[in-house]
Amino acid sequence: MSILVNKNSKILVQGFTGTEGTFHATQMIEYGTNVVGGVTPGKGGGKHLDRPIFNTVADCVKSTGADVSIIFVPPAFAADAIMESAEAGIGLVVCITEGIPTQDMVKVKNYLQGKKTRLIGPNCPGVITAGESKVGIMPGFVFIKGRIGIVSKSGTLTYEAADQVAKAGLGISTAVGIGGDPIIGTPTKDAVELFMNDPDTDAIVMIGEIGGGMEAEAARWIKANGNKKPVVGFIAGQTAPPGRRMGHAGAIIGGADDTAAAKMKIMAECGIHVVNSPADIGKTMAEVIKK
């Protein structure tokens, strides 16, 4: 049944009535996502996009049975929004918000310890299970239904990969944008593990970038667990200079292990089909699948 979200997922939108929330909730509903309601503190009791508005996440869960939350709350309040959802027992929180202060995320990470809530993001495009549920800001039409899972730190590069996979005659089960910040809820390894255990996914595209050790961790996990499904990998930032932040707060080369070359080497050693050019993702996946 794909991973994280499917056609039965009940989605609530935090920051429902704001500009971003309104625009993307509309797009999600058009895609066929089961949006059951939204939260905007102080506007509870009203209706928006033909769905009920609530003052608190707990109220929304009680009335609608929502089990997934997507967050479009401004950065200064986003950490609080994540914790509110966790407290209300939401199983999956997808935080789109970009620009959350790092120390706020240190608190969030600690708060989520021992809770059943999984966080995707922040600063991410969200999650989409092709043809079933779009919980994010990605262009839905790019994600043709199929059996390839995508996990990526970056938004448009995820779309690029999905498009190439489709042009290669394949399609997507679920695509997860995990986000480009230094602290995120679901690291690459967790998403890969979900795909490895998903009967609807045959192979995985794993896209990383400079900074941090998540890709190496995922690669080692893949090898230790017997390379059960083929993985095509790409790391963006082979030409990025050390010490400069490349757009994403997390995309900065701090030490020797942070470089694209170091990550690609570890990934290749762990049996991942590493591509040097981002133009080769789809082509390589098609070749790998045939074998």
Binding site: K153, T158, G180, E209, A236, T239, M246, H248
Partner: peptide, 9 residues
């Protein structure tokens, strides 16, 4: 940002 880095590569 990710696609920008990929384009540079």
């Amino acid at each position: 940002a990710g696609l920008a880095m990929a384009t540079m590569d």
